[in-house]
């Protein structure tokens, strides 16, 4: 399981899990799951287009991920963003099918862009991952507080000098960056599962953002490590294990939250306090 050719898989998986855990925290906080699905999924069309005109698929992925995120955040400003996301995704995938119909050679790789090929990662692919991953983390670190306030209290953000619309565009770019680095390795499907499941579970368990982010990263790491190991042992696809474990972790998180709500000790004290003030 730790042979030479597997080392790259462990490395790539670890990097992707860290990025997905951090970026995913904001995906869930902002209620952007659909965007997190649409950007990686639609970006594959860019790879198809890049192959058609003979450039590096990574560039095509990047252009489509960023372009898609930008289109959605700009058009979504004055309309329901889920509607715009759905339309843009369909349009990107439609373009993908158009590109594929123009060239005859690429069909097989579509499958790997969707479902990933983490067990076949080469060490050449690790370098751009690390660079783009570092860019993502730096951007999130720099914009941590504006992201937080624009995501939770968008109406109140302007009075703190934060423009939520600009944050929406910037976050779209962060997501595009995370997508571009990970989709060629782990596939759109697996990236999406990691962006949603572990971060959503983490927030059920802790009520502090500073602990929720590390916990989300930890859960993503556990998910991907366990999945690589299980895939190695069983020879089943990694994607299946990642999605199944993410879903399990999510359900477990909800269970914890349900248990917590059943014992609302702190609520009672608050109510007593409120009554005291009223009296």
């Amino acid at each position: 399981m730790f042979e030479d050719f597997m080392v790259n898989a462990w490395e790539a998986g670890t990097i992707v899990a860290i990025i997905a855990g951090v970026v995913g925290f904001f995906v869930v906080l902002r209620g952007n799951s659909f965007l997190a699905h649409a950007v990686p999924h639609g970006a594959f069309a860019g790879a198809a287009g890049a192959v058609l005109i003979g450039v590096d698929p990574l560039i095509g992925l990047g252009v489509f991920a960023a372009g898609g995120a930008l289109t959605i955040s700009v058009l979504g400003r004055r309309a329901r963003s889920d509607v715009i996301t759905a339309l843009s995704l369909a349009m990107m995938l439609g373009l993908g099918s158009f590109f594929l119909s123009r060239s005859s050679e690429y069909s097989a790789e579509v499958f790997s862009l969707l479902f990933g090929q983490i067990l076949g990662v080469s060490s050449v692919q690790i370098v751009p991952m690390i660079v783009l991953g570092a860019v993502c983390l730096a951007a999130v670190g720099l914009l941590y507080r504006p992201l937080l306030i624009a995501s939770v209290l968008p109406e109140m953000a302007p009075s703190r000098g934060v423009n939520p619309q600009i944050i929406t565009v910037v976050f779209g770019f962060i997501l595009a960056c995370a997508t571009t680095m990970s989709v060629p390795i782990v596939g759109a499907l697996l990236m999406f599962a990691l962006l949603v499941g572990p971060p959503a579970a983490a927030r059920f368990v802790t009520r502090r953002p500073v602990t929720a982010i590390p916990l989300s990263v930890l859960l993503a790491l556990v998910t991907i490590w366990a999945s690589i190991a299980l895939a190695y042992v069983s020879d089943w696809p990694v994607g299946f294990f990642v999605t199944a474990i993410s879903a399990l972790i999510y359900v477990a998180g909800r269970g914890v939250s349900a248990l917590r709500r059943r014992v609302p000790a702190s609520r009672n004290t608050a109510r007593v306090e409120a009554e005291a003030v009223a009296a």
Partner: peptide, 24 residues
């Protein structure tokens, strides 16, 4: 959001420095 991982204290702190860059 009911499940948002933010305490009252975190929300109030954001009123002070919510626009600043970097990790608090």
């Amino acid at each position: 959001d009911v499940d948002a991982p933010l305490r009252a204290r975190d929300v109030v702190a954001l009123g002070l420095d919510g626009g600043r860059p970097g990790i608090p």
